Simulated assay, not measured.
Amino acid sequence: MQALLTARPADSRLRALAELVLVVAAFGAALSMMTVDQAVGGSVAAKLFVLARMAALVLLCTWLLRRSGERWADVGLRRPPRWWSVPLVVTAGFVGFVAIVMIANPLLAALGLDPPRHTDAALRGDLLEYLFWAGPVTWGTAAFGEELLLRGFILDRIAKLIGSPRTPAMLAAVVLQAALFGSLHFHQGLGGVLVTGSIGVLMGLMWLLGGRNLWACIILHGIINSISHYESYTAVAG
């Protein structure tokens, strides 16, 4: 692995593959130790673990970027060329998200699959629990952290592995990262994997539409999770 990470520029695809495998394996291993759903209503240690593992993954990607002479700006975390376009991309993305939600349940039912599983009963009516998940988790580990990793580092490495800047190749990279994004939500069942993968395609298309920029993706991801957590918090029995 060390030899692959220090390969010459001529071996950039091999280096991209090695970095991709390393980050995806680390991401999957961290999730297998404890899912987000398992941490809802859990101990302080469980909550700190959710935050710490994302910080560790971002630090790992930061180290890999620096070894390649890159920065986060090179994979999308930079000022948009036109700030006014960000709300437009976010709005288009939200419309796409609503369409996915409307189509998902009847389609999953037709396929004989259960909808995504969420164990968030502990969030209902608990203000402190809600504030933790709606604040540092929603906007920190999910919106910012996951977008840096998935639509930033991982999508960039897949694109480098494909080795073509043309639109069909970039669309293939978007689909591949979405498949990874969906598979990392294995704890939500097959229905959750398919729905999350569809959202991953949407986010990847937003990344392309926004000029390979992450800000619209970060904002929409935060909005989606904020709505989800608020609905869970306010769904109090009686």
Rank of each mutant, 00 (worst) to 15 (best):
G135D: 07
G197V: 05
R151A: 08
I219Q: 00
A52V: 10
V23A: 14
I199V: 11
G69P: 00
I199E: 02
L14D: 02
V44E: 07
I199G: 07
T138G: 12
L22H: 09
A26C: 13
H187E: 10
W139H: 11
G112D: 01
M54C: 02
L128G: 08
A30Q: 05
L123C: 06
Y233I: 02
M54P: 02
G182Y: 03
L202E: 06
A237V: 13
I227L: 12
A179S: 08
L17P: 01
G96M: 04
F49I: 04
I158N: 04
D114V: 08
A109Y: 03
S198D: 01
T6E: 13
F186D: 02
L5A: 13
A216L: 10
R67C: 11
R79P: 09
G76L: 11
G135A: 04
A56G: 15
R13G: 09
Y130Q: 09
L31G: 00
W139V: 10
F97D: 06
D126S: 10
R124I: 00
S183T: 12
T138V: 10
L176R: 01
Q38Y: 10
M33Q: 13
V90W: 03
S85T: 12
H118V: 14
P87Q: 01
A7F: 02
A30D: 04
V137T: 01
N213P: 04
A169N: 02
L123K: 07
A172M: 06
Q38R: 15
A142W: 11
T141E: 05
D37T: 05
L59E: 14
A25F: 04
A142G: 14
L48A: 13
F94Y: 15
L127W: 02
S228P: 00
V86N: 06
P136L: 10
Q2P: 00
Y230D: 07
M206P: 13
L111H: 08
L88A: 09
G192M: 09
A46D: 15
A121G: 06
A104M: 06
G140Q: 03
A56P: 14
G28K: 11
V50A: 10
W84A: 12
R53N: 07
V23Y: 13
R13F: 08
R166F: 10
E146K: 00
I199P: 06
A39T: 12
G197M: 05
H221F: 03
A3Q: 14
E231K: 11
Q38G: 15
